[in-house]
């Protein structure tokens, strides 16, 4: 898949933002006034910023309001609704915490649960796609949710939770890569099944339909970046998981925490880039590519 910056930024930042909102909704940390304001600004900034970034991916962003209609069948529609609902609930909750030192518990809890639901709906946009075997697994929601919560805990300064969640995220990330590398082969979709010519013999793409490129090749066949995937995986794991665990285990200081956040987010962007760049769409098989 083409690793489009708008989608990478969207999934990474909104994941972090909603992760932070989970902890804020559960009063971890229990903050009010200016401190609460800062925390909520970061949470909303990341979540909303991510969502705005996602609209850059649209061909016709001016029509984006239409995307709220088809929640019965579409995960993208469900995500849009879940996100707006969560942000609205959280906004009321945040106003109470910041300006009135008042805790509307039910809104905090509902907001926290809905933040998790929102990240889940995001992950299902990818996990539902049979056409991309690497994503078509329960590991995809696990990957999005664990990293969202780990990042949220990190931003919320919940060190114990953060260490635990980072460890879980690291394990899930490894599983995502190990299982993902075999997903296309295990899916049973091949150029033979795609052409129906497997009963005659081995099939090889002889001539593409056109001499130039096309939308399908640009969007679905991304080969260049995969060359460095092994190196990038190690760098992602070190930055996203290893460094924050190490720094947070040393001792707590705001400097080390800030360093952990920067390291984690950098690693997260690499991990998310790999999530898209390494995903093979089966349409590539028709072009003799993957």
């Amino acid at each position: 898949m083409h690793p489009s910056p708008s989608v990478i930024i969207f999934t990474a930042l909104s994941g972090l933002g909603f992760g932070l909102l989970v902890f804020l909704g559960l009063k971890m940390p229990d903050v009010t006034g200016v401190l609460a304001f800062i925390f909520f600004v970061i949470g909303f900034g990341l979540a909303v910023g991510g969502l705005i970034s996602s609209t850059f991916h649209l061909g016709r962003p001016e029509r984006s309001l239409k995307a709220f209609k088809q929640w019965r069948s579409s995960w993208l529609s469900r995500e849009a609704i879940a996100a707006v609902f969560t942000l609205s609930v959280m906004a009321v909750y945040a106003i109470g915490r910041i300006f009135f030192d008042y805790d509307i518990r039910i809104l905090g809890v509902v907001g926290a649960i809905m933040s998790i639901v929102t990240v889940f709906t995001t992950s299902m946009i990818y996990a539902q796609l049979k056409s991309i075997p690497r994503w078509n697994t329960k590991l995809t929601p696990a990957y999005f949710l664990s990293l969202s919560l780990a990042g949220g805990a990190l931003l919320a300064g919940q060190i114990t939770f953060c260490l635990l969640l980072l460890l879980i995220s690291g394990i899930i990330q490894l599983l995502v890569w190990i299982k993902g590398d075999r997903a296309l082969a295990l899916s049973g979709t091949t150029i033979e099944s795609g052409t129906g010519l497997g009963t005659i013999g081995r099939v090889r793409a002889f001539e593409p339909p056109h001499t130039g490129t096309n939308y399908l090749l640009k969007e679905f066949v991304h080969i260049v970046g995969r060359k460095h995937s092994a190196k990038l995986r190690i760098i992602a794991l070190i930055l996203m998981i290893g460094t924050p665990i190490l720094l947070l285990s040393l001792s707590f200081s705001h400097f080390l925490a800030a360093l952990s956040v920067i390291s984690h987010i950098s690693g997260l962007f690499i991990s998310r880039w790999l999530f898209f760049a390494e995903a093979e769409h089966v349409v590539g098989l028709y072009y003799g590519k993957r």
Partner: peptide, 15 residues
């Protein structure tokens, strides 16, 4: 009504 999100093209295995 199309917002050009491209998700339908992602979902189609046939291109």
């Amino acid at each position: 009504d199309c917002i050009g999100c491209g998700l339908c093209a992602w979902a189609c295995p046939y291109g």
